[in-house]
Write a protein that binds this DNA or RNA. Structure first.
Lengths: 337, 337
DNA sequence: GTTTGGTTTGCACACGTGTGCATAAAGTAT
DNA sequence: ATACTTTATGCACACGTGTGCAAACCAAAC
């Protein structure tokens, strides 16, 4: 059993109140006494018990972070950013995977509720209709990261999906491509819908008619991208460029193209979204839209802490995506060496 | 302010003790009364306050998970496994990144200490000499995953690095390769040393002399693999096969080879270790040693919970790696189509 | 020496829950 | 009817910390 504030009090021959104040650097306690107490506490290896403190202050200095799964590298990078600023501020982070399973979602909210987290960051992308009211019931500040339906909540940070998709599609059109395909995500996420409409926007601006045959559906993972790409390859008239919902999908698409012996970018340009750490090491290095993942995580956490410290603010931040041109996209009809 | 057990007690016109017992399904309370109380608690939306409970029971049903960084996909997959069984058992998981920074390591341990976690899982690979005694000071069960120096601790689960490396190196030798290189990790990790010695073992068994020129150093990330591969390519007599410390390193190596116009596997075989989710989508799909990452996470958590429930057990589990042969390795001198 | 005012300290309670023990109620055996 | 057992409930305390308020102490001013 680790020693309590009372043990320190006994050692210092003062009341536990004085110890509490001394350790909190309160002005009320005599400077010398305070220093003496701090010395004793340190020498004895005293560690304050957060549980007791939380009970007294009704603040846990704890936040919950819900995701579909941390196994997704995109999510993991955001998590790293969040954890970074949380640690700096003396907060700890509960990690919970919902796996987009409604039962788990409920379990996660219950757990956070019972543990009295001070705030929550949600990055569950596929949050269902039931999830939002459940979260609201928590009655703590909630920050959404790249979430769908941010409408219902006051605080969110999201990539500009539509703008990013527009950037990329325009890039492809500027390279001379006319038959530009989009590989989406069949899970019906808001970000997919937004990227799709950015794609549609850009086609229109470039005077290209949107052809439903060039819209295929993956699942946000390589396997889905591979399948979708294969269906595109089976078309009588193949596209010459493919914009994928995310980098993971693009990885699958690249694999399908290699298998089929289609050279990238000579015969087909491929683009992704996210700019995962490995994007620049792919074959060929992937042209993509960069999301500042860790930075978004840091910002999400920073805003949440502002809220926790009582600041009243409405923050619906949209971060612009950055076009990163690498070697997987090239002018139409170019020949690779 | 959410309602407390006393609020429920008032609603049910009983003492809070009775409510406590009713909700814990204690035999001591009358069946009908208990049911009535549970009804009322449920209808009122009562959620027990874990903070209060923890103070009373001195158990938090919380564990800490320390890693260098979750941004590493390998780590993230283990994390998913851990979180999975933790949730099932009603435990919550604190995530903390040490970034292999000694100051952060200290901060993490302090945080876990002050939050009175019931147990800790460490996956910090590069734990320094100071870290271990610091952890021991926590005085709670500690479970190590793929950690170096598991010697000092009673409970650990690790991949069989040496055996896995032997498997892979033998595979390469069996394909006829004589000049087999190893790209290690300059951070001086135990797993690197073990894989290196497995590599050396297998070379010896195959009657191949270990040539120091064929041992290069990366950093466990693609950039390091790329550099290391380039140094190997600069040799007068290049290797014909390269075994990389991990998949991330192999990804960098593949990139270097593509850049240099060296065909894989026709001119050079490449192998990794870990079997990350994307390994099978690389160009070419990567031959590697599979670590059952999520499963190891699940098992680590399961053992920790056994310990927490008082079971006395010594567990130093070594999990065998599985050789996964894909298309990045081929017989010496084979010609790609 | 008394009063005033400031500084420092401790008392006592609160936070929410679990639990040993005593008490009350109800049932059973004599 | 009494004594004993069983069952059900409440009282009171504990866990570790923070904090309003009163008390104690001290110094300065009169």
């Amino acid at each position: 059993m680790p020693l309590s504030i009372k043990d320190v009090a006994r050692l210092a021959r003062v009341s536990h109140s004085t110890v509490s104040r001394a350790l909190a650097n309160s002005q009320a306690v005599n400077r010398l006494t305070a220093e003496r107490i701090r010395r004793i506490a340190k020498d004895a290896g005293y560690r304050p018990n957060t549980i007791g403190r939380s009970l007294a202050t009704s603040r846990t200095r704890t936040i919950g972070f819900v995701v579909t799964t941390v196994a997704d590298p995109f999510v993991a990078e955001v998590a790293a950013g969040i954890e970074d600023v949380a640690r700096q501020r003396g907060y700890a982070v509960f990690l919970a995977n919902s796996n987009a399973d409604p039962d788990r979602e409920v379990a996660v909210v219950r757990s956070f509720q019972e543990r009295r987290v001070d705030g929550v960051i949600v990055m569950a992308s596929r949050v269902g209709g039931l999830y939002m009211p459940l979260l609201a019931e928590l009655d703590v500040p909630i920050m959404l990261v790249d979430n769908q339906h941010p409408g219902g909540f006051a605080h969110s940070i999201s990539i500009d999906d539509r703008g990013g998709a527009r950037l990329m599609t325009s890039h492809l059109a500027a390279l001379g491509h006319k038959r530009i395909a989009y590989v989406g995500d069949r899970n019906g996420m808001q970000s997919d819908a937004d990227r799709m409409s950015g794609y549609a926007d850009a086609l229109q601006s470039s005077g290209i008619e949107l052809d439903a045959a060039y819209v295929a559906l993956g699942n946000g993972a390589p396997a889905g991208g591979l399948e979708a790409m294969q269906s595109l390859l089976a078309l009588k008239q193949r596209p010459t460029a493919v914009f994928c919902y995310n980098d993971m999908t693009a990885i699958g698409a690249l694999r399908a193209l290699h298998k089929a012996g289609v050279r990238v970018p000579a015969e087909m340009s491929v683009a992704g979204f996210d700019d995962l750490a490995i994007a620049s090491f792919l074959q060929p290095p992937l042209t993509t839209v960069r999301q500042p993942k860790a930075e978004m995580g840091r910002q999400a956490a920073a805003i949440l802490f502002e809220l926790l410290e009582g600041k009243q603010l409405e923050a619906r931040i949209t971060v612009p995506g950055e076009l990163i041109v690498r070697e997987s996209t090239a002018p139409l009809g170019s020949i690779a060496l």
